[in-house]
Design a binder for these strands. Structure first.
Lengths: 262, 262
DNA sequence: AATCAGTGGTTCGATTATAGAACCACGGAA
DNA sequence: TTCCGTGGTTCTATAATCGAACCACTGATT
């Protein structure tokens, strides 16, 4: 049982994305197919509480300062700064490339933490980015460790949405099997055109797939072979990370892994 | 007009802080003086949407992955990574100390961004931290630029809560006047025991106080005199930052500055 | 300058989701 | 066993929400 009103309210928050960060009242109501009165009431409530901010000039709404605050609570609680970041930093220093922590949430992957190399290619802005599990090494390595039925479902949905990232179902399924067997994955130009990455899986205390750890850098200095060379640096540290993560119980939605799914 | 149900739901979120990041159902209901049924319904709703995570072993709730995602949307929209961070970085490099961006929200100050120096004293974990305006240089410089009636109200509330940071109202008010006249503020050991800071104010497009920019470092290498020596590096860059911030319209609650207050 | 179409915002009675007492089932302590 | 606590569920009186219709305003278009 779940609250319809709160559910509606949270659905409203969901449309504030990097792509569309500001919304007018009626524009938003139209988009969500809701009566503008109720949208207005909810927006006002969020605004009062600091979750949304209404620009007084444009009268458009955007996400508020509260999310900066609450993000800190999550990071603190996960010991991201004190425990996870140092390990990622060590890998970054050793390999000279950026290190990315990705987490499985529902049926997608989310970049949770990025530690940048000293080199000038930056993509820390992508923290929080969410995308389908068949895109990029960091996501594919997760997909490879999901139950086959779920892989099927996700790939079918990808084909339906005509994703350019699925050449054919058979090829992808075969690729996933190889990835799982070998325990790592390399990709280039999938999530970002000019970026290549090399990823290994992370597991929770019940040995269920939790996410992945990746090294990422610009394509021109990151071939598959160079990726393989960096693999040891990843694998050396991934155990430490796994033991931390297994104690933490990461707050992402993976309940379906223990339940039956359709 | 505001939605009671959503308001209640958001009040629940508010108790998930750095100090108390996890809550059991009944514990939470007791704390908020609410019926546990309704708390349960709201918690479930948040959980479904990824805003809360219920640890399957302990059955305790904590903030979910959604806040990492939405924090990114806020930061992206504010151009924190691309525009603000480089300026802060420049100051950090020039002074060798960490640089802190603080913003006024309602009647408190919130650390919105911290760029660390290469030196080993770290307090980036404090991003999102919220505290009263009479504590620390970064907050006092904001308080000094608020209307006198509001200063009165805030200081009175501080005295009522028996804050150790207010020696006497007269002294503090006099201090605030000096700070405002001189345009900067130094403090040590207020927000953190071993940290000193030097702060200058930031204003929005309507020349209203928006927040502050600070240099902060460990007390032993950060005397008032050393703070003053670093002041030019701050002031050189604060204009650039002000011009960026005036275009951005920062999403913090400062409506009361344009309205009457009680 | 008058019209129109679009905003954001408000009102109020019919409708519908919510509130909360009472209820499980479970688990640990005495 | 009993007791107290927990998380979670059920059901109906009740109170909050929904939404058509309503302002007041703005900025094109005629």
């Amino acid at each position: 049982m779940s609250s319809k009103t709160v559910d509606k309210a949270l659905s409203i928050l969901d449309v504030f994305t990097v792509e569309t960060p500001t919304w007018g009242l009626r524009e938003l109501a139209r988009n969500l197919d809701m009566n503008h009165t109720i949208v207005h009431r909810i927006l006002t409530t969020f605004e009062d509480k600091g979750y949304l901010y209404c620009n007084p000039e444009t009268k458009k709404y955007e996400l508020g300062i509260k999310f900066i605050e609450l993000n800190n609570v999550v990071e603190e609680h996960l010991n991201i700064s004190t425990m996870i970041q140092p390990i990622m930093k060590e890998i970054a220093v050793k390999t000279g490339e950026s290190v990315v922590l990705t987490v499985l949430d529902e049926e997608e992957g989310v970049f949770v933490k990025i530690v940048e190399s000293e080199q000038k290619v930056r993509f820390a802005e992508s923290v929080g980015k969410r995308s389908a599990l068949y895109i990029g090494a960091s996501h594919k390595i997760i997909l490879a460790h999901l139950p086959e039925e779920l892989q099927n479902k996700i790939i079918d949905e990808g084909i339906e949405s005509q994703s350019k990232h699925i050449p054919s179902k058979e090829k992808l399924m075969a690729r996933l099997e190889t990835i799982k067997r070998e325990g790592w994955c390399f990709s280039e130009g999938e999530t970002f055109d000019d970026v290549a990455a090399c990823s290994v899986p992370l597991f929770d205390s019940k040995h269920q797939i939790l996410g992945s750890l990746s090294i990422a850098g610009p394509k021109y200095r990151f071939s598959q072979q160079e990726g393989e060379e960096k693999l040891p640096a990843l694998l050396e540290n991934v155990e430490k990370l796994n033991s931390i993560l297994s104690k933490v119980n990461f707050p992402s939605r993976r309940n379906y892994l223990t339940k039956k799914f359709i």
